[in-house]
Design a protein around this nucleic acid. Structure first.
Lengths: 141, 141
DNA sequence: CCTACTTCCTCCAGTGGCTGGAGGAGCAAG
DNA sequence: CTTGCTCCTCCAGCCACTGGAGGAAGTAGG
């Protein structure tokens, strides 16, 4: 079978655009594939798996740096998966916080819409709903 | 009291960096504040509230354009209901969609983490679920 | 073999949303 | 007046892509 595919095919099967694949290679997320005599990239199953991994991780909101870490872990299967676990846990916490705040914003928007129909907009507390959020008021990063 | 603060102070209390505040002004997210005789910006409580709002909304992933419309809800209380209502409904739909996506993301992250036996990477569910995401061609082997 | 067409190559410029530095002016304290 | 800080504007850079120009390589048909 064609287990060596050119970049266009790799893009099709992975759902990552061609320039983005080249970009991932450039920043070292994706290893440089072998080339044909005519200088075209040829991707094998291993590359495609990695590409799918990267794409999926990006969809989950992991940043390239985190992905790099996850990939390096993947490369050394004997190691403890604690770092991977903590990366995922961190991301989960972020997601949960976001959900909480969106819920509060949603409640406020709903309240405004429901209060509507009396001719004018209900008193708007959209700002309060976000400025006094459920999360730790503190800052990060 | 100083209910009129310079930009540095505004940055401190809002958690938005000084250049970013100026950037928000430039793109019209934050109204231009009055200036002192010496051409310095002076922010009042209203500006500060807005700034905090923008920050939270950005953290939640709203684009400046969406934030603008969100802010417009606040700016025109008592106005005719129709436009504000439709904006609010639009945002509500967006928020609900966002929440849905985040919930499914959260479920996936949770599955990854719960499946992780805290052993070695070889059996790590976190890595594995990224490598073989749901529904990648049924593969046996 | 030649031609037409597609896919690929590299390089480079642009995008959005900031971020930070240079060079200079304002202002408060000593 | 001098020191030292904050502030001003302008502008270049960053990240994660995205897309276009100009050209070479592969493929299908005549």
């Amino acid at each position: 079978m064609h287990d060596q595919v050119p970049i266009g095919e790799a893009a099709r099967v992975s759902g990552v655009k061609v320039p983005t694949i080249r970009y991932y290679e450039e920043i070292g997320l994706l290893p440089k594939p072998p080339r044909t005599g005519g200088n075209r990239r040829l991707y094998g199953p291993e590359h495609l798996r990695r590409l799918a991994f990267i794409r999926h991780a990006r969809e989950l909101g992991f940043e390239p740096e985190a992905i790099r870490t996850l990939l390096s872990l993947q490369d050394e299967p004997g190691q403890s998966c604690a770092p991977a676990d903590s990366i995922a846990r961190l991301r989960l916490a972020e997601v949960e916080d976001r959900i909480r705040r969106l819920e509060s914003l949603k409640a406020e928007l709903r309240r405004m819409i429901d209060g509507c129909g009396h001719g004018s907009v209900a008193e708007c507390r959209v700002i309060e709903s976000l400025t006094a959020p459920a999360g730790t008021g503190g800052e990060g990063s």
